[in-house]
């Protein structure tokens, strides 16, 4: 086995974090027309790590919530490198409740190393904010699709991914812990992150096999913003998302919520086949 094959998972992690890779904001700019950004959680402040608002996906009004890492260094600092504070999750929840009220579907675009581990974040209830989102999203009476475009860091990503469908970009990853964190806890050596990445089953393909994701969207080689290939990816995504939302909107509220419950209920149930059972399929 060559090294390249052996550490295929970590190469995805590196690509997911790569400089110049499209950010949450790039996806909004390319997929959503008439985007109008809304700020603030009405409790404490406005978290720039989470960008939220409304716009149109083709002709359909839609709520969009994205974690945004920022493009330039200045932006990255302003967006806290895409790691939200509790205000970010509460802002997201406020937007979801509005979406429910106005019968708009919700698109969550996820790219975060995780919820921010800082003093202020803890004091303002990071765990409580995430827990509240999980519970509220389980019963949100409007379709939700979460699109993972880069890093999906643990609870901080899940708080925007209790969804009816999870779509993964080909090089996006989604994990309970970062490979570095896993290696340092298990083997007391953060440098073993490549081995850890392999063990964690965090690639889009792995997640599909486990039933955590319904679809993998292929990417061109060296997927960067402002390239012609990038445009093609957005066109394709627009189609896929639009069709999937149309499909989900046909369901009654009861059916939608029952299926969302079942979507998560199956993980770890002894008699269940851990595979996706949605029409998104192949």
């Amino acid at each position: 086995m060559t090294e390249a094959v052996e550490y295929r998972a970590y190469r995805r992690v590196e690509e997911a974090r790569a400089k110049g890779r499209p950010t949450g904001r790039d996806y909004i700019d390319n997929l959503i027309s008439n985007f109008t950004e809304f700020h603030g959680d009405r409790r404490f402040g406005d978290d720039a790590a989470v960008v939220s608002g409304i716009g149109r996906l083709r002709n359909m009004p839609i709520t969009v919530i994205a974690t945004d890492k920022g493009r330039t260094t200045k932006e990255k600092v302003a967006h806290n490198f895409g790691s939200p504070h509790p205000e970010g999750y509460r802002k997201a929840l406020r937007q979801m409740k509005l979406a429910e009220k106005f019968h708009r579907p919700v698109l969550c675009i996820v790219d975060t190393a995780g919820a921010y581990p800082g003093i202020g974040a803890e004091e303002r209830g990071q765990a409580q904010a995430i827990a509240e989102n999980l519970m509220a999203m389980m019963s949100l009476k409007t379709p939700v699709i979460s699109l993972f475009i880069g890093e999906g860091g643990s609870g901080g990503a899940l708080a925007l991914a209790v969804a009816d469908r999870v779509f993964m970009m080909e090089n996006a990853v989604y994990s309970v812990i970062s490979p570095e964190g896993c290696a340092s806890i298990l083997w007391k050596d953060a440098k073993k992150m490549k081995e850890a990445a392999e063990c964690l089953k965090l690639t889009a393909q792995d997640l599909m096999a486990l039933g955590v994701a319904e679809r993998v969207i292929s990417e061109p080689e060296n997927f960067r913003e402002e390239t012609r290939q990038a445009k093609q990816v957005y066109y394709r995504l627009e189609d896929l998302l639009y069709e999937e939302f149309q499909w989900l909107r046909k369901k009654s509220e009861e059916e939608l919520l029952a299926q969302r419950y079942e979507r998560f209920r199956k993980f770890g149930r002894p008699d269940s086949e851990q595979r996706a059972d949605c029409q998104a399929g192949q």
Binding site: A131, L134, M135, M138, S139, S154, G155, L158, V162, Y174, S175, V176, I177, C182, I185, L186, C199, L200, K201, L202, L207, L210, V212, R260, Y261, F264, R265, F267, G268, Q274
Partner: peptide, 26 residues
């Protein structure tokens, strides 16, 4: 926290239990 040896499936338990708590609460 979540048990990392079960990877993403541990994370999914957070959503799963939350769903059951919500139904009980309702």
């Amino acid at each position: 926290g979540a048990r990392m040896q079960e990877g993403i499936l541990s994370l999914m338990q957070m959503a799963k239990v939350s769903g059951a708590v919500k139904r009980h609460s309702d």
